[in-house]
Amino acid sequence: MTDKNSESPDSQEPSRKDFEWEYCPSCGIKLPRVEGLRFCTKCGIDLVYIKEHKSLPPSQVATTYQPQTYYRTYRETLSDDEILHTKGRRLWGNLPSIGLPLLAFIVMNGLILGIIFALVFIVPNINFVISLISNPFFIVFSTLAELILIIIPLWYVRKYLRNPSLENRLDLLGFTIKGYNKNELFKEILIGIAFAFIGILLVAGASIAIEAFLRYALGIRIIREGPSSDVEYIITGMDVLVLILMILMMLFVVGPCEEILFRGFMQRGLVRTLGDTWGILITAIIFAAIHLVTLFFYILNPVVFIILFIYLFAPYIAISLMLGLMFRWRNENLIAVTVTHGVYNSLTLLIAFLFMLFY
């Protein structure tokens, strides 16, 4: 009877840590991090043999096996302590960074359109349906659909976490107050409020500049007839109660949801693959373009479409670039950025409402 301890080394399966290699000792290629890797993926040499015998195997041993072409790679997951220290560490790639936010907006708008079409089929009186969807309270209610914008990124980032709790997912996206004491948190809020006012001035300046360019450089004068923006459409028929509800929505729904999606997910992913400049710029362009999707109703009139796009794109790209730079400046934390977004939207509603009320 053969004693168990006298078995040849080849018959014993050593633990994985006994034959982990970073580079192949024979051909020098960097080896993938896979479970149970025994042979080099390029030259096919027996890594276990080298570990046990402290020498290269005979040539026939290495040539007996074909290189392992197909293997399963492992994605590094983040521990709770690593979540807040991912700057410079690659996370998700370009495709999910851009594709998932676009998908989220499609789903959100599809839900709203689905509700409208359902009302058209359920309610026989089309005039009643039109009056219903034009009601300011319906606009307030439809704003809740923005919550969809954070569901998709929250679902996706779970694969990068060892403990994919909701808190950890939000932490990874930058929506967290961890590491901030009361004074630091108050400072972030003040920075956010201050930049909201700066954003108002920035957008006003961009609007004036682009209007002057169209008028004096191209000879095109913008004449407003009826609501010329989403804000003016929202405040049409609005009273004080609806204004308060909309401001609350901007502060606690629209601002956080859009910033988690665009800065927390899209920009965070893009800057790690394309660099800060391109990551911030591409995020800003997509953010601005998505907010102008209603302009495609003018696509059959290319001249009007191009003019309106240029006129409205400048303010959106200005505020979006500012938010992107803020996110980078605040070490990829969304506290100040979210406050800026929510307060900026609230100020635009308030200014438009007061203008409508007194003028």
Rank of each mutant, 00 (worst) to 15 (best):
T143Y: 02
I115W: 09
S228L: 05
C27T: 05
F297Y: 11
V303E: 10
R224E: 14
F186E: 11
K4E: 12
T63R: 12
Y74L: 14
T273Y: 08
A196P: 07
M238F: 14
V337Q: 06
E258P: 02
V157W: 00
P124W: 01
T294V: 10
P58R: 03
I307S: 04
N183F: 12
F287S: 05
C27S: 08
T64N: 08
I335V: 15
F105D: 00
S15V: 07
T273R: 15
S55T: 14
I299F: 15
I351W: 00
N163A: 12
K187Q: 14
I307V: 15
Y298D: 11
I29M: 13
A217L: 10
A204T: 14
I126C: 01
S142V: 07
L56Q: 13
H85S: 11
M108Y: 07
M249T: 05
R89G: 01
Y216K: 06
G110P: 05
I222M: 13
F39D: 00
P57M: 08
D10T: 05
V303F: 12
W155K: 10
G205P: 11
S97D: 09
V203D: 05
I210W: 05
S207C: 04
W329A: 15
V231A: 09
L334C: 07
F265C: 08
N301M: 02
I244E: 09
V343T: 08
I126N: 03
R272Y: 06
I150L: 10
V303T: 11
L119M: 15
G219F: 12
A209D: 12
Q12D: 06
E13F: 13
G264F: 00
P67T: 11
L103E: 03
G269R: 01
V123A: 09
T176M: 04
R75F: 09
L144R: 02
V339R: 00
T41Q: 06
I139P: 00
G114D: 13
Y359W: 09
H341S: 08
T86R: 01
T64V: 03
A62M: 11
I50T: 10
Q267T: 01
N135M: 02
G226F: 05
R268P: 05
V48R: 09
W278Q: 05
L132C: 06
P58N: 02
F355L: 08
T73W: 04
F105K: 00
L161C: 04
F327M: 04
G324N: 05
G226W: 03
S134Y: 09
M249C: 14
V34P: 03
L144Q: 06
F262Y: 06
I50C: 06
T69K: 15
L321S: 04
L261W: 00
A209Q: 13
P136R: 07
G93M: 04
F305A: 09
C43T: 00
R330P: 07
R72H: 14
